[in-house]
Amino acid sequence: MLSIRGLTVHHQLQTLVHPLDLQLHRGEWLALAGESGSGKTLTSLAIGGLLSADLHAHGSIQLEGKELLHLSEPEFRHIRGREIAYVFQDYQSAFTPFITIGKQMDEMIRAHTSLSRQQRQHSCLAHLEQVELPAKPVYNSYPFELSGGQLQRAAIATALLLSPKVLIADEPTTALDSLTSRSIIQLIQRIQQETGIAILWITHDLRQVQRTADTLLIMKSGQVVESGKSHSIFFHPTHPYTVQLLSSIPKLPSRYRLELQNKQVNT
């Protein structure tokens, strides 16, 4: 579905993303993991033509065979939202503060389709229901009336309004509580099973994607150091950096291991 070959991102003085290859299939959950400065966000922005003007991308990014990299801004506007949708870490700035959620969702459909007012409202409410929000009240709410978790759900509902083929989620749960993050991840998992949407998940926290990602790309300083099936990387990491990254994550011992440990202390 999404095929990236030899993608590089340059600044005037330096190369920020070194030749990167990535294949994302329908229904696949691909996690792009790395620390700050690894180039994971630049990669995700390059896909939707969102790089700032001082950055230049080269190589090839194809969505269902169509080259995206050299599209003009009006052509990109046609694709973003409709074919590729984004959800970001900063849910506070996903919505304009003084316009209701419903009105902002409505605007999104109106900009891309010729549906009637009634059809648009119906679609908005259905999508708010899909993300497990009380549809009517949220539709009429202003952003500040919602909690962080609710806002991020509303942002996901908005991203899914036009049934995009690819959802790019850049640290969507980093600013949320661990319990809220978990429920957002479960929600996206469920939506993926229902719709077959392809997901590109950007994160610094490998714990988040251990249960969900099919494929994993580990990035460091603009380079992919390791990629492959998620479970094989988790259980048999080969690159020293991946090993370091995995061992850096704070872990709870299993119940069995802790009991064993306690027994040894007592005897």
Partner: peptide
Amino acid sequence: LDVTSQAAVL
């Protein structure tokens, strides 16, 4: 902090 510097600081 990043994951690896978190581990080092802990």
